[in-house]
Amino acid sequence: MTLPFPGFLPTVSTDPIHQFKIFSLLDWNVGAYNLSFTNSSFWMLVSTGLVLTFLGLAASRGGLIPNRLQSLGELSYGFIADMVRSTAGEEGLKFFPFVFTLFFFILGANIVGMFPYAFTTTSHIAVTGALAIVVILIVVGYGIYKNGLGFFGLFAPHGVPLPVMFFLVPIEIISFLARPITLGMRLFANMLAGHIMLKLLAIFVVMLAGAGLAWAAWVPYVLLIPITALEFLVAFLQAYVFALLTCVYLKDAIHPSH
């Protein structure tokens, strides 16, 4: 265990990449694997803990007439359930708990990451990529379990003339293979870029002021306010997009024919 935790102290690095650095809080090696409890693990614990607390409190009341917190929990339930139902159909509701967990896991991580000194766990490709791969494995696994080889009909749309098929099938296969990459990349890149942009603007304010250009420092300072708001929107939107695309892909597994 390394103390003090540099990430928790109110010192600010001027390096925009510094915020993404992982360091061990509790060393733990299992065989050849380094499974240390890191700052990333800690903030993942915080975000999942907050999500669990919020949803747990919202669900535990179970009143006939909801209070605000319960309403919020029920709205979340309805929001995700409607999304799954409208995108993947009634059968897609089998995966409702998974999609719900995905949405709230990502949303929690993104929102917690917006707070100063916090670590954004979704700004690492290992996390977002793993989530994307899990989604695709479930899609492929369920698609084959449900439709057998018919699942691969996904790559051969109906009513297409044979010569076109020769071009279309490889394109469909490539686009399918690109799904986990784009799914993981989109979230990762959005969070990374957003946080770098915020950091650069913030540092720019300090640098300009430090260089005796206080009047100019106002420009990035004012710009920082709407961009912070935008990043909160992005935090929600990326969680939503991830969950929505999961539903779209699940629909392909349930009904592979185009």
């Binding site: 992982i22 380094n34 499974l35 747990g56 998974f98 967990t101 290992a126 793993a130």
Partner: peptide
Amino acid sequence: WFASQLFWLAVFFLGLYFALARFIL
């Protein structure tokens, strides 16, 4: 940190999943 990230992701994601799927939802 890939191994650590994947391990703790699995721990917290599965934990959240089971808590949500079993009790809260």
